[in-house]
């Protein structure tokens, strides 16, 4: 990987970690029994790693990021387990969405590669996987399945809105 790209990923790691732990965590809140505001953004770090990152690298980086978030959330292992799982699933989703001409070597799976719609699809699948896994581990039983699904649904909605905004603002269009 060329050095500038490396720095971008390192900076992204810390920015997402602090943003999640300091700001998004404080902002999260439930209203009444139904609506539920919670934005989970840190998986974006794993989603945006270059396409050719090997699975074991993804797993270790996901583990590190997850543990970092766990420090802020007081939930040792919960975020980490979810992000390791998401990292494990990522190559499968990438293979599923591979363009006909294949990926260029150094590309990150971003808006530039997939187009806006494609990127939302890609991050949507992985975010859904991540959130469902996360809330399941957090409850640690499927007794609260309805509760888990409800939390997953609302977190997914708001998180994807954030991802869409970030994608539109920060990545250059084609």
């Amino acid at each position: 990987m060329n050095p500038t790209l490396l720095i971008v990923h390192i900076v992204r790691f810390f920015v997402l970690l602090l943003f999640q732990g300091l700001i998004l965590k404080q902002m999260s809140i439930g209203w009444g029994d139904v609506v539920y505001w919670n934005v989970i953004l840190y998986p974006l770090f794993v989603l945006l790693l270059p396409v050719r990152t090997s699975t074991w690298q993804l797993l270790l980086l996901g583990f590190a990021m997850g543990l970092g978030v766990d420090l802020f959330y007081d939930s040792p292992g919960v975020h980490a387990s979810a992000l390791v799982f998401t990292a494990f699933v990522r190559p499968l989703v990438l293979r599923l969405m591979e363009p006909r001409e294949g990926y260029s070597l150094s590309a990150s799976p971003s808006r530039v590669v997939f187009g806006f719609q494609g990127f939302m699809q890609y991050s949507g699948i992985l975010m859904l996987v991540h959130l469902f896994f996360y809330f399941s581990v957090e409850a640690f039983t499927f007794v609260y399945l309805l509760d888990i699904l409800q939390k997953t649904f609302f977190s997914f909605l708001f998180s994807m809105a954030f991802i869409a905004m970030i994608t539109l603002i920060f990545s250059a269009s084609k």
Binding site: T55, W56, F63, D74, S75, P76, G77, S81, F85, V137
Partner: peptide, 27 residues
């Protein structure tokens, strides 16, 4: 990679179970 995946997940779950109760204060 599968092995690493399982290894990391079990490390996570170990932490989840280990610290789920009051021992969280140690953490």
């Amino acid at each position: 990679t599968l092995l690493l995946f399982l290894l990391l997940e079990s490390a996570c779950f170990y932490m989840v179970i280990r610290y789920n109760s009051d021992q969280r204060s140690i953490f």
